[in-house]
Simulated assay, not measured.
Amino acid sequence: MRSAADDIDIGKFFAWAARPRETPARSEELHRIVRRYLDEPDFASAVDHVFSGAGLDLRVDGRDGIVVTARHHSLLRLTAGDIIKRAQPSHRSVIGAVLLAVARTAYPEPGMVDDPDRVAVFTTQSVVDMLDRTAQRLADESGSDSDVDDDLVEGWRRWLDLPQARPNARRRSAGDRPGAVNRICKLLVESGYLNARGDTDGGTWTARPAFRHAVAALAEDSDLYALVNDLPEPIGLDPADPA
């Protein structure tokens, strides 16, 4: 029978789940409730039922802590579309393209999304290079006799409209292509999906477990899932192409 102490710890589970940057190694209290979940099946079942009622899926790990993803019907789900709606119309396609390119750069092969031991490391410049190649190729392939969707081409042209980074600039610009990528990456850092690792190539980032699960779970059974996992086919980009 569930006790008052169990209910309190379930509440703490919700509180810690809302702090995705925290890990058991950094907090004794988080370590304690994670161990309860892993060692006590009855407690874990009670936690799962409560989270399931909120439309949330749990992944609990002794190293990574609590990783939560929201199902498509959950009132707590925040999607890329929610982020894009806050932006100006002219910026929305750029935000969507950057989010997709970050996911594709972090996980260039489909199997990597399912590998919990892989540390996904990428740079701002690698994301910029992918976006440059993709947008330019679509622009080159578009035309009156092309079967490339005009709306798709126009969306990617928004990326090409952004200025390139100035060589040897002393200050970084928030309005150029690397600046656009860095803004999205910093948002993902604040949300607990990425870690900022350094300044190499405009910025170096590592994907946290929450990002890997988000790429797999939030895009599951959708067109976005196909784009993330099979990006070369839909947009004509060969990951083996030279930068």
Rank of each mutant, 00 (worst) to 15 (best):
R133K: 11
Q164A: 15
A165M: 08
P178V: 05
R157S: 10
D150W: 07
A169P: 04
R170D: 02
G202N: 08
L152H: 12
R177L: 05
T123P: 03
R197Q: 10
N182K: 10
A196L: 10
P178W: 03
A174Y: 05
L138W: 09
R177H: 03
G202A: 06
D132R: 04
Q125L: 12
A196S: 11
T206W: 02
Q164E: 15
D132P: 00
W156E: 01
L162Y: 01
A180S: 11
G202I: 08
G175F: 06
D161A: 13
I184N: 01
V121W: 06
G143D: 08
L152N: 05
G143I: 11
R183H: 08
V189T: 13
Q125P: 01
S191W: 01
D145Q: 09
S126W: 02
L131H: 07
D150H: 11
D132C: 02
D132V: 03
T204N: 03
L160T: 08
D199Q: 13
R166V: 15
L194W: 03
G203Q: 07
W156D: 02
N195T: 04
E141Y: 04
Q136V: 03
V153S: 07
S146L: 07
S126G: 10
V121F: 06
R137Q: 12
T124Q: 09
S146I: 07
D147F: 15
N182W: 07
V189W: 02
D199S: 14
R197D: 13
L160K: 09
G198L: 04
V181H: 00
W156G: 00
D151P: 02
R183W: 10
L131E: 05
K186C: 05
T200C: 01
T123I: 03
D201S: 11
R171D: 06
V119D: 15
C185L: 04
S144G: 14
D132Q: 04
T200D: 14
V153D: 07
D151K: 11
R183P: 00
A165G: 08
D199A: 14
L162D: 00
D132E: 14
V121Q: 06
S146R: 07
A135D: 08
D149R: 06
G203A: 09
L138G: 14
R137S: 14
W159C: 09
R170V: 03
D129S: 14
N168M: 10
D150N: 05
Q125N: 10
G175N: 11
D147H: 15
T206E: 15
L188E: 01
D150F: 05
N168I: 04
A135P: 09
L188C: 02
G143H: 13
C185H: 03
A180E: 11
S142Q: 09
P167D: 12
R177T: 02
E190A: 15
R177K: 15
V121Y: 07
L138Y: 10
S191I: 03
I184W: 00
A135V: 12
W159H: 05
T206R: 06
G192I: 03
D150T: 13
A139E: 14
A165E: 15
G143E: 09
